Amino acid sequence: MLPTRLEIIPTRDIVPAVLAHVPAGTTLTVTCLPHHGINRTLEAAAALAGHGYTVVPHLAARLVASRGELARILRICTASGITEVFAIGGDGAAPAGPYPSSEALVRDLAELGGGTLKIGVAGYPEGHPSISGPQLLESLLAKQELASHVVTQMCFAATAIAGYMDGLRNEGVLLPVWAGVAGSVPRAKLLQLAAKIGVGSSLRFIAGKGELGRKLLGGSRYQPAQLVAELETQPLPPAGIHLYSFNNLDPQLRQQAAASRR
């Protein structure tokens, strides 16, 4: 079984929800959204790290106001025993400081972290709504000497993820790739999210797979088990599964994360 991480959103009630439903020792990544801000991410990450979870806070470049603030963020991480972060550009309309992209952020993270900090970066199997394919590749090539791994945007077709991984290797990006997979989520919400972030191609792919497509997208909820099984049997599977939980910490997600740690 591939190792699995759960991505959570730092809502006000997320810490008690995790404590109630997710085994200690599970690796959790904590999102960083414009309407929450970095401090909410850090508060949740520090609290969960204190309860025995391995925590990876997301750091959105456009929300960091200065290099000094970045140093403060890393001091909080160090004090909490956090040794890994995930660097993204973020959705802010304009940068709050000197980091318009994750590339600039990664360089300062690596320097301020003294070479001991693991840094994950984002990958896009189906492209990015506002960044061209050549730009995405150029950025990954520039970051890979400082980064530890790539986490993909959620995708719904194992072949698309495998093809993306092959493409990266052919272009010289040799970082381990964690496959971003949607967890159990209401079908209507999933379709809305897919349209927003530009992952419709793989949804259309599975929708056209007859009985399997109806099984995956039919009913009221999407379930990731079939996609995870297909990823596990690829000739070169991903390094692990990055499960977008949408804060739905149901038993299936908990069991998968717990089993992957054995």
Score class of each variant (00 low, 15 high):
Leu33Gly: 08
His21Thr: 12
Trp178Tyr: 11
Gly198Glu: 00
Ala158Arg: 00
Leu28Tyr: 04
Leu105Trp: 09
His149Phe: 12
Gly89Leu: 07
Ser139Pro: 01
His51Leu: 07
Leu59Lys: 00
Ala24Met: 11
Gln252Met: 14
Ile73Val: 07
Gly240Asp: 06
Arg187His: 15
Ile38Asp: 03
Val85Phe: 01
Asn170Cys: 11
Ala96Val: 11
Glu145Ile: 08
Gly120Ile: 12
Ala157Gln: 07
His58Cys: 03
Val15Glu: 03
Gly115Val: 06
Leu191Val: 05
Gly113His: 03
Gln255His: 08
Glu211Phe: 05
Ser132Ala: 09
Gly123Lys: 03
Glu7Ala: 08
Ser66Val: 10
Gly219Met: 12
Leu243Thr: 05
Ala93Glu: 04
Thr27Leu: 11
Ile82Pro: 06
Gln135Ser: 14
Gln135Asp: 13
Asn39Gln: 07
Ala257Arg: 01
Val199Thr: 07
Glu43Gln: 05
Leu59Glu: 01
Arg62Val: 08
Ala17Trp: 11
Pro237Gln: 02
Ala158Ser: 01
Gly183Asn: 10
Val30Cys: 08
Val22Gly: 08
Thr27His: 12
Phe86Asn: 00
Val151Trp: 11
Gln226Ala: 07
Gly240Glu: 02
Tyr244Cys: 00
Leu109Ile: 13
Val106Met: 05
Leu6Asp: 12
Val185Pro: 06
Lys118Met: 12
Ile88Phe: 05
Glu7Val: 14
Val150Glu: 00
Val199Asp: 00
Leu146Glu: 11
His149Tyr: 13
Ala71Gly: 11
Ile197Gln: 05
Ala104Tyr: 07
Tyr53Ile: 00
Leu28Cys: 09
Ala24Tyr: 13
Gly114Trp: 04
Ala110Tyr: 15
